[in-house]
């Protein structure tokens, strides 16, 4: 397969094949076999409803036909929906970013005792494991339809994301400053405030901007399960086959997301 002999001692024509990426042929072909078996298994077990799927093209034509041109007639409804989405995103970011600080401290190995660390870590893991829509459904079930469920959802979402990155940041701080504070005889919380927080603050501001942007995106989605905002309006439009209105909402959502992404990126560049 590969050539290992010394130059000049070689009789006859030489061959060369590219050394395979995975050296063991058993493993190499085994992997391919596994992929093939997986594909067969997946396609065989997935329940495709082919009759209904075959129906897709005419339906797509109907939906897109009904959707163009998008109708902005019910602008008032559109505006209310977006206003609520913004409010949800803003309040959830504020709450989430504030709450993420204590959870981040709890989830940072170097500043808290082991049991608290495990608690903080699991809170963050759990809130990161669930897609915001699942959290939203639970909050809708608990506190009813409306923006309150949305705010709670996105607060949890923000705690998970910001808390994780912030905890990593705390674990990487310059320990010298902490020791300097300890040497002055400062208490635990003064050390946190004077030696830890100043080091993570710039990062926190950037993360907040990022989180505001992703909360705005998510707020358009949690409405689909009834947690307020434009998502609910979109869901209703789809439910009532108002495709022209639905497409109008979609276009505005895309536009808002692009603008918000641009602003958030610009602000983060300014800060860092």
């Amino acid at each position: 397969m590969t050539r290992s002999d010394i130059p000049g001692t070689h009789p006859g024509p030489r061959t060369w094949r590219k050394p395979p990426f995975i050296a063991s042929p058993l493993l190499r072909y085994g992997l391919w076999l596994m992929v093939v078996i997986y594909l067969i298994w997946a396609f065989a077990t997935l329940p495709f409803n082919w009759d209904r799927i075959a129906d897709g093209l005419p339906r797509a034509a109907r939906i897109f036909g009904g959707g163009f041109p998008p109708s902005f007639e019910r602008g008032g409804l559109l505006l209310t929906g977006f206003k609520e989405s913004f409010q949800i995103a803003i309040l959830a970011t504020l709450l989430g970013v504030m709450l993420s600080i204590p959870f981040a401290v709890m989830a940072a190995k170097n500043v808290v005792p082991k049991p608290i660390y495990y608690f903080g870590r699991s809170v963050i893991i759990v809130s990161r494991s669930f897609h915001p829509v699942i959290v939203a459904i639970l909050f809708v079930a608990a506190v009813g339809f409306g923006p309150l469920a949305g705010i709670l959802t996105l607060t949890v979402y923000s705690i998970g994301f910001v808390g994780k990155l912030l905890a990593e940041e705390i674990e990487e701080i310059d320990w010298g400053q902490v020791e300097a504070m300890k040497a002055t005889g400062a208490g635990y919380f003064s050390i946190l405030v004077y030696a830890v927080f100043p080091q993570i603050l710039p990062r926190q501001v950037g993360l907040s901007m990022y989180q505001l942007d992703s909360n705005l995106r998510a707020s358009a989605v949690v409405g689909i399960v009834g947690a307020g905002g434009i998502g609910g309006t979109l869901m209703n439009a789809f439910g009532r086959y108002d495709y022209d209105f639905a497409f109008a909402i979609l276009l505005i959502i895309i536009a808002v997301i692009l603008v918000s992404e641009g602003i958030s990126g610009w602000v983060r560049k300014k800060i860092w």
Binding site: T2, P7, P13, T15
Partner: peptide, 19 residues
């Protein structure tokens, strides 16, 4: 081509690095 490659690599002393 492979033959030529080995010959040239031997000429400049890098044939043992082929892989």
């Amino acid at each position: 081509d492979i033959e030529r490659a080995f010959t040239l690599m031997e000429r400049v002393g890098i044939a043992h690095y082929a892989n």
